[in-house]
Design a protein around this nucleic acid. Sequence first.
DNA 1: GACAAGCTAGCACGGCCGTGCTATAACAGG
DNA 2: CCTGTTATAGCACGGCCGTGCTAGCTTGTC
Lengths: 206, 206
Amino acid sequence: MPKVVDPVERRRELVEAVLRVIRRDGLEQASVRNVAREAGLSMGSLRHYFASQSELMVFAFRTIIDRIESRLASLEPEPDPRRRAERVLAELLPLDDERRAENEIWLAFTSRALVDPTLRDLRDEGYDALRAGCQVILTDLSAAGLAPTDIPVETERLHALLDGLAVHAAIRPHIHTAQSLRAAIAHHLDALAIEAAVALGIPRTG
Amino acid sequence: MPKVVDPVERRRELVEAVLRVIRRDGLEQASVRNVAREAGLSMGSLRHYFASQSELMVFAFRTIIDRIESRLASLEPEPDPRRRAERVLAELLPLDDERRAENEIWLAFTSRALVDPTLRDLRDEGYDALRAGCQVILTDLSAAGLAPTDIPVETERLHALLDGLAVHAAIRPHIHTAQSLRAAIAHHLDALAIEAAVALGIPRTG
DNA sequence: GACAAGCTAGCACGGCCGTGCTATAACAGG
DNA sequence: CCTGTTATAGCACGGCCGTGCTAGCTTGTC
């Protein structure tokens, strides 16, 4: 069996080419021809690794989801609930160029999934994972008295805040810098803590 | 000059055809041919009203912005700041089918504007208008002691929350119903009021 | 060296695309 | 009625699309 290049590696290269094209020129430019050219391969060769365009797209989206999950899994343990929340949330926001790229591609996929059924399952998987992550964070904070106890409502709010910030970072990257995104998250966590304190009954009047 | 149909009316019909196609099949299906067919016209006839595809798209996006603005302008006056905020915000969320359609199209345009410079100005206009609206609401609430005084930070948060909820409503319309969207907004306004009360010094301890 | 399997390249088909162009019909003002 | 403007239709061009297909190349096994 001939193996000048690991096929897994080839697929990885091709996915990276797809993601580059999508980010630079948009999802509609991610044609078999363009992606093959970007990867320095022929159309026929590309189709040896991905039998159809749809398969390529799904694999590319899946790759992004896997990357985010692996980043979350590799976070070092953090005993303080508040700092833990900040770190996890910071990992989910487009704070550096790599994640900005992923974020823009996620936005393009989300938009296309509205009319392309083959992408819906993956989009829903990402949505569910993010929501579950928000829920874990809030349950954690709430147990420490740093967030209100109504987890479902707060999950809805935090999740929407996260995705909204991500959209804004894609639209206006120069305004929504890493610093301002971090500040927005920190402010929300502060607010949650205040609400929790009020709900528990405040020791001092202010 | 022959006027069997008002040309303004024709353009309106064509824009509606565009929006129908975009919502049903996606932005990439909104070709001159498909739109003309949807409107029951020939390609040549469509091109009599819109010299290029880009012109048609820009006009369609502009139409959506105009619709939102006119809806906001036609809101009946509401003396109570809190209720006023709720009404304005409710107008900006996809609570009925018409606005759900607009919301999905807005998402598609936003995504495409990432790589299509001709749509950027309009996208930015919509972004700025929404942000300004959030700022007005918060200034208003803050003056009544119903929101914290740090308007820029709260504007960022409310704006992101709104767009995040809109994205979620597009992704999972069955989960994010009109009722749950209204509840999310109401909850956030409640939280803002609590924060403001804490900042002002609370008369009672709880 | 022979062979098979994996890999790469490239062509060809039918299809949709935006746009330039011309031809025809409908109508207004003279 | 004639004329010119507007509206509508439709064709043709070059281009990109996804995919089916074949042919050649590389490489490991025998």
